[in-house]
Computed example of a mutant assay.
Amino acid sequence: MRIVEASFMKSAQSIDDSPSPDMAEVAFLGRSNVGKSSLLNTLTNRKGLAKSSSTPGKTQLINYFAIKFKTENEEIPHLFARFVDLPGFGYARVSKTLKAAWNKNLTGYLEERPNLQVFVHLIDSRHPNLEIDKNVDEFLRTHKRGDQIIINAFTKTDKLKQNDLQKLKRAYPDGIFVSNLKKRGMLDLQKAITDHLFGNQIF
């Protein structure tokens, strides 16, 4: 399975002005400057699809992208989902506590969006134990429904020494380790997403 089309749909402030919840969504969230926009562009192979703000922590909109997958199943040649780029968190101009860092509308999306199936929590591989990321993980695990999964994706692994990367993998055996620069781990991340969204439809 591979992504064959990716396009920007719209920006929204809340679930009230979001697209109709008529297909599965995958939310990408992480600290500002974790490489979220670059990862989305690399994962979809669409340069410039997701645009990062020039001011970290400034963007407060929920950005929706339509994604088309090509499968190996001749009876179901294509499947569809949405990727959702959520505002980054963690900068001084953003409040320290998690629920204040994500404004009320964003928290509402995470808690109430009925078609949200996958949380992709991006973590800088050079700083895997920051308190804010631990708080995010706790928030997600507390609010996660039974039909949702959390994927921890560690970014910027090309900046680690090999020994440090191996230590990180041992510490987080369920993690996915990616590099936008080297295009490393993208197939692993895509497979984790599509396996949950589509299961045996892809075969």
Rank of each mutant, 00 (worst) to 15 (best):
I67S: 08
F203H: 04
H196E: 05
L168R: 00
R93L: 14
R184G: 04
G48Y: 15
T155Q: 05
D158I: 07
P19V: 11
M186R: 06
Q60M: 09
T107S: 14
R170Y: 04
N180K: 04
E5C: 01
R82H: 08
I76S: 04
H78Y: 15
K167W: 02
N163Y: 02
S52D: 01
S11I: 10
V120D: 04
K161G: 15
V136F: 14
N135D: 11
P128Q: 08
V4W: 11
Y109G: 03
L110A: 08
A100Q: 15
A6I: 07
T194I: 07
H196R: 11
L79R: 11
I67W: 12
L39Q: 10
M9Q: 12
E75A: 14
E72L: 11
K47T: 13
S37G: 03
D85P: 05
S52M: 11
I15Q: 12
G30L: 14
G175T: 01
F8D: 07
A24M: 07
T71A: 06
F28G: 07
L98P: 00
I76P: 00
G88A: 09
L86V: 06
G88F: 06
E111V: 08
I176P: 05
R184Y: 13
F28R: 05
I62T: 10
V118E: 00
N103T: 13
